[in-house]
Design a binder for these strands. Structure first.
Length: 637
DNA sequence: CGCTTCTGTCATCTA
DNA sequence: TCTAGATGACAGAAG
């Protein structure tokens, strides 16, 4: 599970990078907390790929601090704003493919000790505390403009600025003169150069109040009207997508989408202090997105689904959604098929059994000791076993009227028609049971004076007639005959308890006869019970075998899906590497030189910000690894 | 003759 | 307490 989650996270990072190229900001910090340490943010300027939306600032300014940050309506409002902005961005023919970023750390040839900040070498190990401290110095803009006052830049770590080298700070100081308002209002913001973005982003003090007016304009009521329909449709769509595609416990609560170009690089707020406070509040509000999403399941899922819908569309359409859908479909259809087959089998069994009964209607007169034995007794007309008492009573009258009390033709012919109605087992099994049952000889045989010796020969249908006489008598039948009991074994077994008791009382049997009658009844019922029990056992075995086959098929299917997913994840990882190289090739360091992709990498940090992290020198790790290996070897020795 | 399968029966438990 | 049903175990017959 962890491996799968890790793969998922990696894919998420890759998606974040990818979306950042088109100006969509994805906040996945909460999800990545368990795997990646929060990173200092980068990407400044008008064309920054990770430009934070100013809605959080608006939340503070418009709604004020009186509104609880976890207010669902408030969160929905700002989320709607983000969605609207996303729609606007999508409507633009241009995409912001140019990334501006702070050079987080420049790896010198001698080592990382040249940096003022001792945490620069920490890289990924930078903690959230640092991010939190940095957030205090962030400008009010609320965007991913991670510029900060110069004075504070030199003080210590704060966001991306925490990793700025001295040279970079100097460059910023020299280029402070660039007005940020121009950047904010200019339509050519996306064409700003990287260094320009850096310098502008390092100018929070020049932010005019006009930018707030721009924000207010962006939050016009008309936009909200348009937004409602768009958001509703989008949420519904994405809600269904994410619910179907991600059925597992994937908690991407903080996924957010924001537009980049429309809001431009933000010029910072007037005062860095207030900026820091507001930004801190902003960050705190962001951090509560998880809980907000919990309180607002539908909307949270919808918001979270925004980037994930892209994920599914870009990478995992087949693997996640399609595969799961196929799985569910197959499982459902398997059950439906089973149900349908069961019902069909029942019908077929009944039909087949009727055929068997027709073919053997006059054959196994005494072979009804199977499941049908109970209902087959002496009921010439009535098909139900519940009517056995009345039918048996009439039969008793006939029997009592006769010499031996057994009228052959009347007794067993009708009983065959009763069997098919009362049986609950498949025809094959029932036929087998009837075929092999010899314990209860037919009443006509009992009625005959001359009894054949028990030879237990199974007579087929064509043997009906004189050959029935040769059928063997069961031991109980012989005993009953020997004891002059005027009832057949079939009658003794099938008659109800009350009737049986009445027979015992009314016929003034001797104790031996009563004992024999009880034994015959007990053995007869137990024989049927044993037959049923064995049939059930066989059915259970058959059912288990079918279950094994079904589970094996399901296992094979899941293995195929697993292989497909692994293949997709590998492709995504490869794509991520290529995107990282592309991004790094567009970045410049303080001296204007392009970053070496071999020495730097992109890391997703807190609040979805991306930081350029230096790749650790393999020599260090290798040396450490060698040391540890040596220690291990020494310990072994 | 030995093995397997089928069937009946007994003993026991449970409802 | 009795009865019916279920089931494991055993034995005998048959292939």
């Amino acid at each position: 599970m962890q491996i799968a989650k890790k793969c998922f996270t990696e894919g998420l990072i890759q998606l974040t990078i990818f979306l950042s190229l088109v100006g969509v900001r994805v906040d996945i910090d909460s999800y990545l907390t368990g795997y990646y340490s929060p990173l200092a943010e980068i990407n400044l300027g008008p064309s920054s790929a990770y430009t934070q939306t100013p809605f959080h600032v608006l939340r503070d300014t418009l709604d004020g601090y009186g509104v609880h940050p976890k207010c669902p309506e408030l969160d929905y409002f700002f989320a709607s704003r983000r969605l609207l902005d996303e729609v606007r961005t999508l409507g633009s023919p241009r995409f912001h493919t140019q990334l501006n970023a702070w050079l987080v750390h420049q790896v010198s040839s001698t080592g990382p000790s040249t940096s003022n900040n001792p945490d620069t070498s920490a890289g990924l190990e930078s903690t959230e505390n640092e991010a939190g401290e940095a957030s205090e110095h962030l400008p009010v803009r609320g965007q991913d403009v991670h510029c900060q006052p110069d004075s504070e830049l030199a003080q210590g770590p704060c966001g991306a600025g925490a990793f700025l080298s001295e040279d970079e700070v100097k460059i910023k100081e020299e280029e402070e003169a660039v007005p940020l308002t121009q950047l904010a209002d200019s339509s050519t913001l996306e064409h700003e150069s990287l260094l320009e973005g850096i310098t502008t982003l390092s100018e929070p003090d020049h932010v005019p109040p006009a930018t707030d007016i721009n924000w207010n304009n962006l939050l016009s009521v008309a936009d909200l009207d348009v937004l409602d329909s768009l958001v509703t449709d989008r949420l519904l769509e994405l809600d269904s997508d994410i619910s179907s595609a991600i059925s597992q416990d994937v908690s991407l609560h903080d996924a957010m989408v924001a537009s980049v170009g429309a809001f431009g690089p933000a010029s910072g707020s007037a005062e860095s202090r207030t900026v820091g406070q507001q930004q801190r509040t902003l960050l705190w509000l962001e951090s509560t997105n998880s809980s907000l999403s919990d309180s607002l399941p539908g909307m949270a899922v919808g918001l979270a689904a925004l980037p994930f819908a892209s994920v599914c569309n870009l990478t995992g359409n087949m693997t996640s959604q399609g595969a799961l859908g196929d799985c569910l479909d197959e499982a459902v259809f398997d059950q439906i098929n089973q149900l349908g087959l069961e019902s069909l089998d029942t019908i077929d069994n009944q039909l087949n059994y009727l055929e068997c009964l027709d073919s053997r209607a006059f054959e196994d007169l005494d072979s009804d000791s199977g499941l049908s034995l109970e209902s087959s007794y002496g009921c010439p007309v009535s098909p139900g076993s519940s009517e056995m008492s009345s039918s048996s009573s009439s039969l008793y009258c006939e029997e009592e009227g006769g010499a031996t009390g057994y009228s052959s033709e009347v007794d067993f012919k009708p009983s065959k028609g009763i069997i098919d109605h009362s049986t609950m087992w498949p025809p094959v099994d029932l036929s087998e049971s009837v075929w092999h049952d010899h314990s209860y000889s037919s009443p006509p045989l009992l009625s005959r004076p001359s009894l054949s010796l028990p030879c237990k020969t199974e007579e087929p249908e064509e043997d009906t007639g004189p050959q029935l006489e040769e059928r063997e008598l069961s031991r109980d039948e012989m005993r009953a005959r020997a004891m002059f009991i005027p009832f057949s074994v079939l009658q003794i077994v099938n008659m109800p308890v009350e009737e049986f008791m009445e027979v015992l009382d009314s016929h003034s049997f001797s104790p031996e006869q009563v004992t024999l009658l009880r034994d015959i009844r007990r053995r007869g019922k137990n024989k049927l019970a044993a037959q049923n029990c064995r049939k059930r056992k066989l059915d259970a075995i058959t059912g288990l075998e079918e279950e094994v086959e079904r589970l094996q098929a399901q296992r094979d299917r899941l293995l195929r899906e697993k292989r497909l997913t692994a293949k997709t994840m590998g492709a995504v990882a490869h794509q991520f590497k290529q995107l990282t190289r592309d991004v790094l090739s567009r970045l410049r360091d303080a001296s204007g030189r392009p970053l070496n992709p071999e020495r730097f990498t992109l890391q997703c940090g807190a609040n979805g910000r991306i930081a350029v992290q230096p790749i650790r020198q393999p020599a260090v790790t290798t040396s450490a690894g060698k040391k540890t290996d040596k220690r291990k070897k020494e310990k072994k020795q």
